[in-house]
Design a protein around this nucleic acid. Structure first.
Lengths: 333, 333
DNA sequence: TTGTAGGCGTTATCAG
DNA sequence: CTGATAACGCCTACAA
């Protein structure tokens, strides 16, 4: 592939000049500029991004660390990043996380190697300390779905506890008092926060949540199915299921239906996330909207800004609130 | 961030030596190697990927061109690529396509700038010629979901016509003779191929498909809903719907159910792709499995191999076949 | 307005 | 086994 030097020679100018027209650099003769441009076109020249990154000691790709592109939730996240990246004419370098300390470390290492100036990191395993240090090293790093007080302005996160509270309050308002909770057994904080929120609402309404009415499992459809099955085996008594996420909720509904329980007539179910599937499944799932795509876009904007040295106006904070999306899986009793 | 020179100085050796231990280069004194390694660890050094790419004139990231990370289908594709990439310790550089000639051109341009030696391209808008040329320039380029005879060994694709035939044959075997087809109005070949397959099966069974029983729309849920609505408005007579993809099928089912038609008792529906949603929706969708993730993995393996100069054993071809996944949305009549 | 020259961090070729 | 040194392709003062 043609290099800058070849263009320069062909145009009878110096590399410096070519570089200038490439970057809309200052003051290049109109004629020269045109000539160079046409040659560039003609030779089908493309600046070498690597060389450029080297010289600038900054890459134009925004780095992304996420666990799994297949999960609709992460896909939405990636999409949010991609949308903004495209607007800014940069690409995204995805470094597969997959939950787990080592994976995340490696993923971040890769991004560091590439000298991404902006990065959007979804990390659940890394300890706060390491992330704080990373934040110091990389001005353009922002965390998504995690809050660390020391680097508050680098965090774009959701108020999970409020979410838990919301879903419980909603069920209570619908007349439910016998709740079951199916949560995730992943070793991260989100489940805890959500349950804390649920307990909060329950306490306020003076409702008890028996230990047997709580089940944990992998946060996917199978986990939801298994959880409901366990609940039934234990003879748990409930009219409403609060799920950790939509996938579990869908699994729960499937299992309930398979066992002859009508949803929502006999049992109400509420999810969390509002991924695509919530609209598709039957009955349509009532759930909590997790504006992950919007959040991801925001995070990317921030990362890009910070990387450019534009710092947050103050100790601004980026906490998002989940909201209820009413569909057909909850019924008033 | 520390550079190689700093490491070299700190270890009292030359850069060349450091470079050698980094790349497990030939013959470095055992003692030296250990010393350098420890210093590297100590200074938390990371080789600069950009510099390395420059020197090698090859990047270690596999480039990916896809339209939209949000679509579950593409998410699965991306996931397939990512899985293989990770195994090979490389990252993926995603360049947003979004269907459309210009977007795709730009996306590819970006990848070229980065000198990705391996790339997996999903392009529906670019003309054959351009892709063929690209294949010449970039040995490690492979096309996914598209077949171009001139570069057959670079194509990993699905037999869409066979898919169309399969779905129609299946419905016919279930006793259906009054079929409706809802297809995509995107200007790409896939819909045509699938319909061709359907017609083929119909012809073989001597069944007629009235023009009014075919509807086109955007290949998503809304498109599916609208299509069914149009079908009903036109008073089309059918007991089975063959959808372009699962999203349309889901939309169709939703609309059918909303209008009081029991699926599959009164109307059977079959989808295409077998994305996650097919399992989640109710009734569970009978559909055609599009092994996109497997195909994406294969494409990535190929791209990586070709990039390394390992050429296909012959004029091998990578045509995949869709298969029927029976669930609950089709009924024998 | 344009050219010269040095540097960015690695790799690779030669010598020693 | 190890050390100079010249690329790699581009950017950016500094001159002219």
């Amino acid at each position: 592939m043609a290099t800058m030097k070849e263009i320069a020679d062909a145009a009878g100018v110096s590399q410096a000049t070519v570089s200038r027209v490439l970057n809309d650099g200052p003051k290049v003769g109109r004629a020269t500029r045109e000539r160079v441009k046409s040659i560039i076109k003609e030779l089908n020249y493309r600046p070498n991004a690597n060389a450029r990154a080297l010289a600038n000691s900054r890459s134009d790709a925004v780095g992304v660390v996420i666990a799994d592109l297949y999960e609709p939730f992460f896909a939405a996240l990636a999409h949010g990043v991609e949308t903004v990246a495209r607007k800014h004419d940069t690409q995204i370098l995805i470094s597969g996380g997959s939950i787990g300390l080592e994976h995340e470390q490696k993923a971040i290492g890769t991004l560091l190697s590439h000298r991404c100036d902006a990065m959007v990191v979804h990390s659940k395993s890394l300890p706060d300390g390491q992330l704080i240090e990373l934040a110091r090293e990389v001005p353009g790093m922002v965390l998504i779905n995690r809050f660390i007080p020391e680097i508050a302005s680098r965090c774009v996160w959701l108020d999970n506890q409020a979410g838990g509270r919301l879903m419980a309050e909603y069920m209570i308002r619908q007349g439910h008092t016998k709740l079951a909770v199916i949560s995730s057994d992943f070793p991260i904080d989100d489940p805890l926060h959500r349950i804390a929120g649920i307990q909060e609402a329950l306490a306020a309404a003076n409702i008890d949540l028996p230990e047997v009415n709580i089940e944990y499992g992998p946060p996917n459809q199978e986990g939801g199915e298994a959880a409901v099955q366990n609940l039934m085996s234990k003879g748990a008594d409930f009219t409403a299921v609060l799920a950790y996420n939509d996938a579990m909720a869908a699994g729960a509904m499937a299992m309930l239906l398979d066992h002859g329980f009508d949803v929502p007539r006999e049992v109400s179910v509420i999810g969390y996330d509002d991924i695509l599937l919530a609209k598709y499944c039957r009955p349509k799932l009532t759930t909590l909207r997790y504006p992950i795509e919007m959040m991801a876009s925001k995070a990317t904007e921030l990362a890009l800004q910070y990387a450019q040295g534009i710092l947050p106006s103050e100790d601004t904070t980026y906490k998002y609130q989940p909201t209820i999306v009413k569909r057909d899986s909850v019924r008033k009793i």
